[in-house]
Protein backbone atom coordinates (compact mmCIF):
# COMPACT_ATOMS: atom_id res chain seq x y z
CA UNK A 1 0.00 0.00 0.00
CA UNK A 2 1.27 3.47 -0.84
CA UNK A 3 1.32 5.87 2.07
CA UNK A 4 -1.20 8.67 2.44
CA UNK A 5 -2.24 11.35 4.86
CA UNK A 6 -5.05 10.44 7.20
CA UNK A 7 -7.74 12.88 8.32
CA UNK A 8 -10.69 12.33 10.59
CA UNK A 9 -13.09 15.26 10.27
CA UNK A 10 -15.75 15.75 12.93
CA UNK A 11 -18.49 17.11 10.68
CA UNK A 12 -19.93 16.57 7.23
CA UNK A 13 -18.97 20.12 6.22
CA UNK A 14 -15.34 19.51 7.19
CA UNK A 15 -15.28 16.19 5.32
CA UNK A 16 -16.65 17.80 2.16
CA UNK A 17 -14.11 20.62 2.48
CA UNK A 18 -11.22 18.15 2.78
CA UNK A 19 -12.46 16.07 -0.15
CA UNK A 20 -12.98 19.03 -2.45
CA UNK A 21 -9.62 20.56 -1.51
CA UNK A 22 -7.81 17.45 -2.76
CA UNK A 23 -9.11 15.68 -5.88
CA UNK A 24 -6.85 12.70 -5.09
CA UNK A 25 -8.36 12.10 -1.66
CA UNK A 26 -10.62 9.16 -0.85
CA UNK A 27 -13.29 8.82 1.82
CA UNK A 28 -13.15 5.72 4.02
CA UNK A 29 -15.79 4.30 6.32
CA UNK A 30 -15.47 0.58 7.11
CA UNK A 31 -12.71 0.19 4.56
CA UNK A 32 -13.61 -3.40 3.73
CA UNK A 33 -13.35 -2.69 0.00
CA UNK A 34 -11.05 0.34 -0.07
CA UNK A 35 -8.25 -1.17 2.01
CA UNK A 36 -7.97 -4.36 -0.09
CA UNK A 37 -7.98 -2.14 -3.21
CA UNK A 38 -5.21 0.04 -1.76
CA UNK A 39 -3.16 -3.05 -0.90
CA UNK A 40 -3.34 -4.04 -4.56
CA UNK A 41 -2.22 -0.52 -5.44
CA UNK A 42 -5.31 -0.11 -7.57
CA UNK A 43 -5.60 3.37 -6.15
CA UNK A 44 -3.13 5.96 -4.92
CA UNK A 45 -4.94 8.55 -2.82
CA UNK A 46 -2.86 11.38 -1.38
CA UNK A 47 -5.15 11.48 1.62
CA UNK A 48 -7.77 9.25 3.18
CA UNK A 49 -10.68 10.94 4.91
CA UNK A 50 -12.14 8.83 7.72
CA UNK A 51 -15.88 9.49 7.93
CA UNK A 52 -16.49 7.40 11.04
CA UNK A 53 -16.64 10.34 13.44
CA UNK A 54 -19.40 12.21 11.61
CA UNK A 55 -22.68 12.14 13.54
CA UNK A 56 -24.75 13.31 10.52
CA UNK A 57 -23.99 10.01 8.74
CA UNK A 58 -25.16 7.77 11.57
CA UNK A 59 -28.41 6.24 12.71
CA UNK A 60 -31.28 4.05 11.60
CA UNK A 61 -34.76 5.50 12.02
CA UNK A 62 -38.34 5.14 10.86
CA UNK A 63 -39.83 8.34 9.44
CA UNK A 64 -43.48 7.74 8.57
CA UNK A 65 -43.61 5.38 5.60
CA UNK A 66 -39.87 5.51 5.11
CA UNK A 67 -36.91 3.80 6.73
CA UNK A 68 -33.87 6.08 6.80
CA UNK A 69 -30.47 4.46 7.16
CA UNK A 70 -27.38 6.60 7.68
CA UNK A 71 -24.41 5.92 5.41
CA UNK A 72 -22.25 4.76 8.32
CA UNK A 73 -24.66 2.01 9.41
CA UNK A 74 -22.63 -1.16 9.55
CA UNK A 75 -23.98 -4.37 8.03
CA UNK A 76 -24.29 -5.85 11.52
CA UNK A 77 -26.39 -2.86 12.61
CA UNK A 78 -28.77 -3.22 9.65
CA UNK A 79 -28.97 -6.99 10.22
CA UNK A 80 -29.89 -6.66 13.89
CA UNK A 81 -31.78 -3.34 14.00
CA UNK A 82 -35.32 -3.75 15.39
CA UNK A 83 -36.46 -0.85 13.13
CA UNK A 84 -35.14 -2.56 9.99
CA UNK A 85 -36.47 -5.97 11.00
CA UNK A 86 -39.91 -4.51 11.60
CA UNK A 87 -40.10 -2.34 8.48
CA UNK A 88 -38.16 -4.29 5.83
CA UNK A 89 -37.16 -7.74 7.12
CA UNK A 90 -35.73 -8.64 3.70
CA UNK A 91 -33.17 -5.84 4.10
CA UNK A 92 -32.09 -7.08 7.53
CA UNK A 93 -31.86 -10.61 6.17
CA UNK A 94 -29.76 -9.40 3.23
CA UNK A 95 -27.39 -7.53 5.56
CA UNK A 96 -26.92 -10.66 7.67
CA UNK A 97 -25.51 -12.49 4.63
CA UNK A 98 -22.96 -9.92 3.46
CA UNK A 99 -19.35 -11.11 3.70
CA UNK A 100 -18.61 -12.69 7.07
CA UNK A 101 -19.04 -11.63 10.71
CA UNK A 102 -15.86 -9.57 10.78
CA UNK A 103 -16.67 -7.82 7.50
CA UNK A 104 -20.18 -7.06 8.78
CA UNK A 105 -18.67 -5.57 11.93
CA UNK A 106 -16.81 -2.96 9.84
CA UNK A 107 -18.43 -2.56 6.40
CA UNK A 108 -21.13 0.09 5.93
CA UNK A 109 -24.19 0.46 3.73
CA UNK A 110 -22.97 3.83 2.43
CA UNK A 111 -19.65 2.35 1.38
CA UNK A 112 -21.27 -0.58 -0.38
CA UNK A 113 -23.81 1.53 -2.26
CA UNK A 114 -21.31 4.25 -3.23
CA UNK A 115 -18.85 1.61 -4.47
CA UNK A 116 -21.50 -0.21 -6.57
CA UNK A 117 -19.61 -3.45 -6.97
CA UNK A 118 -21.61 -5.58 -9.42
CA UNK A 119 -21.44 -8.47 -6.92
CA UNK A 120 -22.53 -6.34 -3.94
CA UNK A 121 -25.85 -7.07 -2.22
CA UNK A 122 -27.20 -3.67 -1.18
CA UNK A 123 -27.55 -2.11 -4.66
CA UNK A 124 -30.37 -4.52 -5.53
CA UNK A 125 -32.24 -3.59 -2.35
CA UNK A 126 -31.80 0.11 -3.07
CA UNK A 127 -33.00 -0.29 -6.67
CA UNK A 128 -35.67 -2.88 -5.88
CA UNK A 129 -37.19 -0.76 -3.12
CA UNK A 130 -37.01 2.44 -5.17
CA UNK A 131 -34.94 4.10 -2.47
CA UNK A 132 -33.66 7.65 -2.56
CA UNK A 133 -29.97 8.40 -2.09
CA UNK A 134 -29.42 11.51 0.01
CA UNK A 135 -26.05 13.22 -0.48
CA UNK A 136 -24.57 16.38 0.99
CA UNK A 137 -25.84 18.21 -2.10
CA UNK A 138 -29.03 16.55 -3.40
CA UNK A 139 -31.45 13.64 -3.51
CA UNK A 140 -30.99 11.00 -6.20
CA UNK A 141 -33.54 8.36 -7.23
CA UNK A 142 -32.18 4.81 -7.27
CA UNK A 143 -33.06 4.53 -10.98
CA UNK A 144 -30.65 7.40 -11.70
CA UNK A 145 -27.99 6.48 -9.17
CA UNK A 146 -26.51 3.19 -10.41
CA UNK A 147 -24.67 3.64 -13.70
CA UNK A 148 -22.88 0.35 -14.26
CA UNK A 149 -19.82 -1.35 -12.86
CA UNK A 150 -18.35 0.65 -9.94
CA UNK A 151 -20.06 3.76 -11.31
CA UNK A 152 -22.73 5.93 -9.69
CA UNK A 153 -24.21 9.38 -10.09
CA UNK A 154 -22.03 10.64 -7.23
CA UNK A 155 -19.74 13.44 -8.33
CA UNK A 156 -16.16 13.74 -7.12
CA UNK A 157 -16.21 14.98 -3.55
CA UNK A 158 -19.93 14.30 -3.14
CA UNK A 159 -20.77 12.23 -0.08
CA UNK A 160 -23.58 9.77 0.45
CA UNK A 161 -25.31 10.82 3.68
CA UNK A 162 -28.26 8.42 4.01
CA UNK A 163 -30.58 6.13 2.11
CA UNK A 164 -34.34 6.50 2.38
CA UNK A 165 -36.20 3.24 1.79
CA UNK A 166 -39.96 3.41 1.23
CA UNK A 167 -41.46 0.65 3.39
CA UNK A 168 -42.91 -1.99 1.02
CA UNK A 169 -45.91 -4.24 1.46
CA UNK A 170 -43.68 -7.23 0.79
CA UNK A 171 -40.08 -7.74 -0.19
CA UNK A 172 -37.70 -10.65 -0.59
CA UNK A 173 -34.11 -11.33 -1.59
CA UNK A 174 -32.38 -14.45 -2.81
CA UNK A 175 -28.87 -14.96 -4.14
CA UNK A 176 -26.62 -17.71 -5.41
CA UNK A 177 -23.15 -17.35 -3.98
CA UNK A 178 -19.97 -18.50 -5.56
CA UNK A 179 -19.09 -21.49 -3.38
CA UNK A 180 -15.48 -20.36 -2.91
CA UNK A 181 -15.49 -16.57 -2.82
CA UNK A 182 -19.08 -16.30 -1.52
CA UNK A 183 -19.63 -13.36 -3.86
CA UNK A 184 -22.99 -13.13 -5.58
CA UNK A 185 -23.26 -14.98 -8.91
CA UNK A 186 -26.83 -13.77 -9.33
CA UNK A 187 -29.25 -12.18 -6.91
CA UNK A 188 -32.81 -10.90 -7.11
CA UNK A 189 -34.57 -8.41 -4.89
CA UNK A 190 -38.34 -8.24 -5.37
CA UNK A 191 -40.66 -5.71 -3.78
CA UNK A 192 -44.38 -5.06 -3.83
CA UNK A 193 -45.21 -1.48 -2.94
CA UNK A 194 -48.07 0.96 -3.24
CA UNK A 195 -46.28 2.26 -6.33
CA UNK A 196 -46.11 -1.13 -8.02
CA UNK A 197 -43.78 -4.11 -8.24
CA UNK A 198 -40.03 -3.85 -8.73
CA UNK A 199 -37.45 -6.53 -9.44
CA UNK A 200 -33.74 -5.70 -9.23
CA UNK A 201 -31.01 -8.11 -10.30
CA UNK A 202 -27.47 -7.96 -8.92
CA UNK A 203 -24.38 -10.05 -9.50
CA UNK A 204 -25.41 -11.27 -12.93
CA UNK A 205 -24.54 -8.23 -15.03
CA UNK A 206 -21.92 -5.46 -15.00
CA UNK A 207 -24.25 -3.49 -12.75
CA UNK A 208 -27.53 -3.85 -10.93
CA UNK A 209 -30.57 -3.64 -13.25
CA UNK A 210 -34.35 -3.91 -13.21
CA UNK A 211 -36.12 -6.85 -14.82
CA UNK A 212 -39.17 -5.30 -16.51
CA UNK A 213 -40.77 -8.54 -17.70
CA UNK A 214 -40.67 -10.01 -14.23
CA UNK A 215 -42.10 -6.82 -12.77
CA UNK A 216 -45.03 -7.07 -15.22
CA UNK A 217 -45.58 -10.75 -14.45
CA UNK A 218 -45.54 -10.18 -10.69
CA UNK A 219 -47.81 -7.14 -10.92
CA UNK A 220 -50.42 -9.40 -12.57
CA UNK A 221 -49.83 -12.34 -10.25
CA UNK A 222 -47.59 -12.11 -7.18
CA UNK A 223 -46.34 -15.68 -6.97
CA UNK A 224 -43.12 -17.61 -7.64
CA UNK A 225 -44.87 -19.31 -10.57
CA UNK A 226 -45.43 -15.96 -12.25
CA UNK A 227 -41.69 -15.38 -12.74
CA UNK A 228 -40.83 -19.02 -13.39
CA UNK A 229 -41.76 -18.63 -17.03
CA UNK A 230 -39.82 -15.39 -17.58
CA UNK A 231 -36.48 -16.03 -19.25
CA UNK A 232 -33.65 -13.57 -18.65
CA UNK A 233 -31.62 -12.85 -21.79
CA UNK A 234 -27.92 -13.69 -21.48
CA UNK A 235 -26.97 -10.66 -23.60
CA UNK A 236 -24.63 -8.39 -21.68
CA UNK A 237 -24.45 -10.56 -18.57
CA UNK A 238 -21.12 -11.42 -16.96
CA UNK A 239 -19.24 -14.41 -18.29
CA UNK A 240 -16.12 -15.55 -16.45
CA UNK A 241 -14.43 -18.58 -14.89
CA UNK A 242 -17.19 -18.70 -12.27
CA UNK A 243 -20.03 -19.05 -14.72
CA UNK A 244 -21.16 -18.28 -18.25
CA UNK A 245 -23.66 -15.56 -19.11
CA UNK A 246 -26.18 -18.31 -19.97
CA UNK A 247 -25.73 -19.88 -16.53
CA UNK A 248 -26.20 -16.55 -14.82
CA UNK A 249 -29.28 -15.83 -16.94
CA UNK A 250 -30.76 -19.11 -15.77
CA UNK A 251 -29.90 -18.26 -12.17
CA UNK A 252 -31.73 -14.93 -12.44
CA UNK A 253 -35.07 -16.68 -12.93
CA UNK A 254 -34.35 -19.18 -10.15
CA UNK A 255 -33.33 -16.43 -7.72
CA UNK A 256 -36.37 -14.32 -8.61
CA UNK A 257 -38.62 -17.29 -7.86
CA UNK A 258 -36.92 -17.83 -4.52
CA UNK A 259 -37.08 -14.12 -3.68
CA UNK A 260 -40.84 -14.03 -4.28
CA UNK A 261 -41.25 -17.17 -2.17
CA UNK A 262 -39.16 -15.57 0.60
CA UNK A 263 -41.29 -12.40 0.45
CA UNK A 264 -44.44 -14.47 0.95
Amino acid sequence: MYDFEYHKPGSLADAVKLLSADPDSKPISGGQTLLPALKHRLNKPTSVIDLSGIAELKGVRREGDKLVIGALAKHVEVATSPEVKAAIPALAQMASTIGDTQVRNRGTIGGSVANNDPAADYPSAVLGLNATIVTDKRRIAADDFFQGMFTTALEPGELLVAIEFPVPEKAGYAKMRNPASRYVMAGAFVAKTGGGVRVAINGAGPGVFRQAEMEKALAANWSPDAVAGVKQSADGLNSDIHGSAEYRAHLVTVMAKRAVAAAG
Partner: peptide, 24 residues
Protein backbone atom coordinates in the same frame (compact mmCIF):
# COMPACT_ATOMS: atom_id res chain seq x y z
CA UNK B 1 -9.43 -10.21 4.73
CA UNK B 2 -10.43 -13.74 3.84
CA UNK B 3 -8.65 -16.15 6.21
CA UNK B 4 -9.32 -14.59 9.62
CA UNK B 5 -5.93 -15.47 11.17
CA UNK B 6 -5.62 -11.79 12.16
CA UNK B 7 -8.94 -11.47 14.02
CA UNK B 8 -8.79 -9.34 17.17
CA UNK B 9 -11.48 -7.57 19.17
CA UNK B 10 -11.80 -3.82 18.76
CA UNK B 11 -14.20 -2.35 21.33
CA UNK B 12 -15.65 -5.81 21.81
CA UNK B 13 -16.29 -6.60 18.13
CA UNK B 14 -14.27 -9.14 16.17
CA UNK B 15 -12.54 -7.53 13.21
CA UNK B 16 -9.85 -8.51 10.74
CA UNK B 17 -6.81 -6.56 11.88
CA UNK B 18 -5.37 -6.67 8.35
CA UNK B 19 -8.31 -4.63 7.06
CA UNK B 20 -8.40 -1.71 9.47
CA UNK B 21 -5.90 1.12 9.64
CA UNK B 22 -4.09 1.57 12.92
CA UNK B 23 -5.35 5.17 12.88
CA UNK B 24 -8.95 3.94 12.58
Amino acid sequence: SQCGACVVHVDGESVKACTILALQ
